[in-house]
Structures are given as structure tokens and as C-alpha cells.
Simulated scan of single mutants.
Amino acid sequence: MKHFIFDCDDVLLDWTGGFRDFLVSIGHTPTEPRPGDWSMGQWIGIDEAACFRLIETFNSSPAFGQLKPYDDALAMVNQLKDEGHTLTVLTSCSDDPDIVNRRAKNLHDCFGDAFPRLICLPLGQSKSQWLEVLRPGIWIEDNYKNALIGQTAGHKTFILRRAHNRKHEIEGVDDFVIWIDTLAEVL
């Protein structure tokens, strides 16, 4: 059996979609349906410090605990669970107990008891130490920097193509991570 380690936001759960809905509800209409870069401030049209505060506010809200799963994530997680693989979630959403509880409940509501281990780090904190502890495994991420950290730690690393990470992909040149369109490609 193998150990699969998943980032959560925009891999398992549609964080960007939930955040976009939150922004619209408070009067900020993003320029595009999805950000074309990691700069959420640019997407919303505000400075990065104000954007970070909005992300913290969203992650502290009930809406953060009601994110929708990606369909391919549901199918893959169910298959891996049925096959008896070990599944872990490693996310940098917050280490605040209320936020961690919302994240755990959201994952359970979507995926049942598929994830016996949920590791929640402070917002934006590097995952490098945990990726060292959890090795070797199969690491699935949407953040190119975190994908490279996982590869350096010895994981077989996949990165999901999302609008915000496409500028990092250089067709046919990246030998460090495996770019995928859907989680089914991992299988």
C-alpha cells in the first residue's frame, strides 16, 4: 500500500470558488472567475496586505467549512480508500482550533473517514518539515513551490493544473514534478 498526501485547497476542495462567492457577498467582484496568478490582491483589485486579511476572514467564516469537493477528488479518494491506501491531508489554512475543526468537518462531510490524519499549519506556512516527516509518499499539490519542496523531500510529486499556477509549467522541461489535469491521472 502507498501513502498519498494531499494538499486540500484547490486539490480536494474548491477553496477559490468558495472565496470568490465570499468576495461577491461582501462587495468585491474579482476581475475573472479564477485568479490567473497567486496574487489574489491583483485578482480582486486590492493590495496584498488587505487581501491577506480577507483570506483570514474567509478562512475564519462558516463558509470555509462548507467548501465543495472536486468531483475527481471524490472519485479518487473513494478508490484509494477502498484499496486500503494511507491518506493524509497537509494544508496551510490555519492552526486555529475553530478553523481546523471546520476543515475537519468539511472533509468528513465530503469524504467520510477517508483521512485519518489532517495536518493544519498556519496560513502560508511552509510544508517542508511535514513533507520530510511524511516521506516517502505521493504528494499532490497545486502550489508549484510546495510541489518542488515535496519532490526535494523524496516524494513522487504531482501538481494539478489550475489557472493560478499555469505560468510555472514549461512544457516538456520540468523533470521535477508531474503536471496533471485531473486526479485520475495519478492512478
Score class of each variant (00 low, 15 high):
residue 155 H to A: 03
residue 117 R to P: 02
residue 103 R to N: 10
residue 9 D to T: 09
residue 121 L to C: 07
residue 109 D to M: 07
residue 11 V to M: 00
residue 183 L to E: 02
residue 35 P to K: 08
residue 54 L to I: 06
residue 32 E to G: 00
residue 55 I to S: 11
residue 53 R to V: 12
residue 107 L to A: 01
residue 3 H to C: 10
residue 177 V to W: 05
residue 187 L to T: 15
residue 70 Y to N: 08
residue 42 Q to V: 09
residue 143 N to Q: 06
residue 162 R to Q: 15
residue 127 K to S: 05
residue 25 S to P: 04
residue 29 T to W: 02
residue 11 V to F: 00
residue 59 N to C: 08
residue 138 I to R: 13
residue 61 S to G: 07
residue 27 G to D: 04
residue 85 H to V: 06
residue 99 I to P: 04
residue 107 L to Y: 02
residue 38 W to R: 10
residue 15 W to I: 02
residue 138 I to Q: 11
residue 109 D to I: 00
residue 98 D to S: 12
residue 130 W to G: 04
residue 43 W to L: 08
residue 178 I to D: 09
residue 76 M to I: 04
residue 32 E to I: 00
residue 71 D to A: 12
residue 26 I to K: 15
residue 95 D to E: 06
residue 169 E to F: 08
residue 1 M to R: 14
residue 110 C to Q: 15
residue 107 L to Q: 05
residue 136 P to A: 00
residue 67 L to H: 05
residue 139 W to H: 14
residue 94 S to K: 09
residue 116 P to G: 11
residue 33 P to G: 08
residue 116 P to R: 13
residue 52 F to L: 14
residue 109 D to S: 10
residue 134 L to V: 09
residue 40 M to V: 15
residue 78 N to R: 13
residue 126 S to V: 04
residue 86 T to I: 04
residue 31 T to K: 15
residue 102 R to M: 10
residue 27 G to E: 00
residue 187 L to Q: 14
residue 137 G to N: 04
residue 128 S to I: 04
residue 154 G to K: 12
residue 20 R to F: 07
residue 150 G to Y: 02
residue 19 F to T: 09
residue 78 N to T: 06
residue 141 E to D: 11
residue 129 Q to E: 12
residue 169 E to A: 09
residue 141 E to K: 13
residue 102 R to S: 05
residue 123 L to T: 04
residue 95 D to N: 15
residue 150 G to C: 03
residue 25 S to D: 06
residue 151 Q to P: 01
residue 97 P to Y: 07
residue 21 D to L: 07
residue 143 N to E: 02
residue 153 A to H: 13
residue 104 A to P: 11
residue 145 K to D: 12
residue 156 K to F: 02
residue 81 K to L: 03
residue 149 I to C: 09
residue 45 G to D: 01
residue 133 V to P: 00
residue 136 P to I: 00
residue 68 K to P: 00
residue 149 I to N: 15
residue 182 T to D: 05
residue 19 F to P: 11
residue 62 P to D: 12
residue 88 T to Y: 03
residue 96 D to V: 10
residue 157 T to S: 12
residue 38 W to E: 06
residue 3 H to T: 15
residue 20 R to H: 14
residue 10 D to P: 05
residue 55 I to N: 11
residue 50 A to E: 10
residue 65 G to W: 06
residue 23 L to T: 07
residue 121 L to M: 07
